[in-house]
C-alpha cells in the first residue's frame, strides 16, 4: 500500500519540479545532439505533401502516419529528413528511420518532438543522427545512455556488430 502512494504522491510534484527546473543543458544541447560532421542544414522543412508536390525543398518532415518509402526516389536532393514524434509512445518513427537507412539514405535523419533520453539509444540504432527534443535533455544522462550497451544482440541501421558475429569471429 505504501509503495503505491509514494509514486502517486510524487506525481503531483512532478509538474512543478519539472516545469520550473532550470535548463543548464539547453544552450549547448543542439550541437551535442547532432552526431554528424557535416554542417547543420538550415532551411525550411516541408511537410511530406508539399515536398512531393514538387517544391524546391532539400528538407522534409515525416509525420508518424506518412510512408517513408515515398521519399525513396528523392534521396538525391534531400539533405535532411525530420521524423516527428508527437508522442514518445508512438513508435512508427523508428520504422520510418529503419526503412530510410535500409534504402540507402545517408543524409541527416532527425528525430523531433517528444524525444526523451531513454529513447535515444533505440533511435541511434535505427539510424537517427540528430535530435530535436521538445524538452531539453541532460547531456550527462544522454552520454551515459548512449554509452550504456557495449554489446547488442541484433543488427540495425547503425552498423554495430551483433554478438552472434562477435561469438563466431
Amino acid at each position: 500500500m505504501d509503495n503505491r502512494m509514494n509514486v502517486a504522491d510524487r506525481d503531483g510534484q512532478d509538474q512543478v519540479a519539472v516545469a520550473g527546473a532550470p535548463s543548464p543543458a539547453l544552450d549547448d544541447a543542439p550541437a551535442k545532439l547532432r552526431f554528424r560532421d557535416d554542417a547543420p542544414f538550415e532551411s525550411p522543412i516541408a511537410p511530406l505533401a508539399d515536398f512531393l508536390a514538387g517544391g524546391n525543398f532539400a528538407a522534409v518532415r515525416l509525420e508518424p502516419g506518412d510512408d517513408a518509402r515515398a521519399l525513396l526516389p528523392h534521396f538525391g536532393r534531400l539533405k535532411l529528413i525530420e521524423v516527428a514524434f508527437p508522442r514518445f509512445r508512438d513508435g512508427r518513427g523508428y520504422s520510418s528511420a529503419a526503412v530510410l537507412r535500409q534504402a540507402g539514405y545517408t543524409g541527416e535523419l532527425r528525430a523531433a518532438g517528444d524525444v526523451l533520453v531513454d529513447q535515444l539509444g533505440f533511435m541511434r540504432r535505427v539510424g537517427f543522427d540528430s535530435f530535436a527534443p521538445n524538452a531539453p535533455l541532460n547531456l550527462k544522462v544522454v552520454q551515459a545512455t548512449l554509452d550504456r550497451y557495449r554489446y547488442v544482440y541484433m543488427k540495425a541501421a547503425d552498423g554495430r556488430t551483433p554478438v552472434w558475429a562477435l561469438r563466431h569471429g
Partner: peptide
C-alpha cells in the same frame, strides 16, 4: 555477452528509477 547485456540493462533501469525518484522523468514517461 549475455551477462554484459543483462548487467547493462539492470544498470539502466536502476538509473531510470533514480531519475524517476528525483522527478527528472514524469510517471507518464
Amino acid at each position: 555477452y549475455d551477462q554484459a547485456i543483462v548487467d547493462a540493462r539492470v544498470a539502466e533501469f536502476k538509473d531510470q528509477v533514480s531519475r524517476r525518484l528525483r522527478n527528472e522523468i514524469t510517471e507518464d514517461q
